[in-house]
Design a protein around this nucleic acid. Structure first.
Lengths: 187, 207
DNA sequence: AAGTTACTTTCAAAAGC
DNA sequence: GCTTTAAAAAGTAACTT
């Protein structure tokens, strides 16, 4: 399917973003009024709100700050924040109309289309940027400086790129890995 | 000044006391695991190097000692899994692994991933298998490595499967359960690895 | 033996211990 | 460092059927 075009196999699997929706929130009342809200101050200081539409989980804090996770696209992330704003406004809370957010992390999957030998990569790549402990985890952990992301490489040729701030980071990471692998004759 | 001397003596005492404790810990764990003296000495060197580079800061002596022992086993080609080290330590497997990564990087140990081959002697002796069966298992693993059948798989599981196969080929069959026991993996894992090795290495086995 | 569930690794933010 | 969220990769583990 994507065997010959790794770049076309790029798929955003999860986006984590933060935002500030207001100055302060009364979490106990929020938790009791919102249907899918969960709140255990002993367990975690924020309210956990699960949305179904764009399947997103929101962590709401007393400071008015929020964390959104689970979005599979920037568009659904935006919609999720809008929906959250509407739900809070429906409770009589003053929430600005144009909420802004900051993407903190994007998790992307990709496929090189060819199996790779992790042992050889572990020897050929810069040792201090790699961690490969098959006893612990089947993936090889490769930390890139530019783009500043962490890539998990699997023997199947599939990858997970995480730590990026923009979708482009994943594409550049795959591009860089492909050239490094070909330079070492490992692909 | 006298103060300065007292301080030096105090620091020196604490340092020596900590080192003595660490060394006794290394010895206790090594004994519990039945590790030879060269491994204990290697671990002691790793630990001392870690102390000299102030890598103990913010870490427990026991954690660093356990990580040093784990590293020493690998350096000496007689690997123990993190779980095995954790069993004789008071520190969790997670903490040992984290500390190992840290000292490994800071001391530039440059350890390659553990090879399944290094587990063969220990597992085979645990199963009372002769050198011939052992050699055959090593050969199977060598081929498995070349054919990329070890990427991402647990070294102990692959080694166990190879030994299972060689024990049958050598006419000294050990059951999957027996091999699983000494290797510390499940029978399911041995079965999965064994099937893969058998079909991709055309090592036909008649049961 | 097959299935299912779950845990390992990576990442980032939030408030507080 | 921990707690909580989400998600993928592939291997291994632990239960149930």
């Amino acid at each position: 399917m994507n065997e010959h075009k790794p770049e076309e196999s790029l798929k955003i699997e999860n986006i984590v973003a933060s935002a500030k929706v207001t100055e302060s929130l009364d979490l106990p009342s929020l938790a009791s009024q919102l249907k899918d809200a969960e709140y255990n101050k002993k367990r975690f200081p924020g309210v956990v709100l699960r949305m179904q539409d764009p399947k997103i989980a929101a962590l709401i804090f007393g400071s008015g700050k929020v964390v959104l996770t689970g979005a599979k696209s920037i568009d659904s992330l935006s919609r999720g924040l809008e929906i959250l704003g509407d739900q809070l406004r429906a409770l009589g809370i003053d929430i600005p109309e144009n909420l802004t957010y900051k993407i903190q992390n994007i998790v992307t999957s990709a496929d090189l289309g060819t199996p790779i030998n992790l042992n050889k990569i572990a020897v050929g790549f810069n040792l201090d940027k790699i961690e490969y402990e098959p006893e612990q985890f089947p993936g090889l952990v490769y930390r890139l400086d530019d783009p500043k992301v962490v890539v998990l490489l699997f023997g199947s040729g599939k990858l997970i790129i995480t730590g990026g701030k923009v979708p482009e980071d994943a594409r550049r990471a795959v591009q860089r890995i492909l050239s490094e692998l070909s330079n070492l004759g490992l692909i | 000044r006298l103060r300065k001397w007292q301080r030096r003596i105090r620091v020196s005492n604490a340092t020596e006391r900590n080192l003595a404790f660490a060394l006794s810990e290394l010895d206790r764990m090594a004994s519990a695991l039945g590790l030879p003296r060269n491994v204990r000495e290697t671990a002691a060197v790793v630990y001392r190097d870690a102390v000299d580079k102030n890598l103990i800061r913010g870490r427990s002596i026991e954690g660093v000692a356990a990580a040093a022992l784990y590293a020493a086993c690998r350096q000496c080609s007689v690997p123990r899994t993190l779980d095995e080290i954790a069993e004789v330590s008071r520190v969790s497997r997670k903490e040992i692994g984290r500390t190992y990564r840290f000292i490994s990087r800071e001391l530039g140990l440059k350890l390659l991933p553990t090879s399944p081959i290094d587990y063969v002697p220990r597992f085979c002796s645990g199963l009372n298998l002769k050198g011939e069966v052992q050699s055959r298992a090593v050969e199977i693993l060598r081929q498995a490595g070349e054919r990329e059948l070890t990427s991402g798989r647990g070294p102990t599981g692959v080694a166990a499967a190879a030994i299972y196969i060689s024990s049958i080929l050598g006419g000294e069959r050990r059951t999957q359960r027996e091999v699983a026991e000494v290797a510390g993996v499940t029978e399911v894992t041995i079965r999965n690895r064994y099937k893969e090795l058998a079909e991709k290495l055309d090592v036909e086995i008649i049961l």
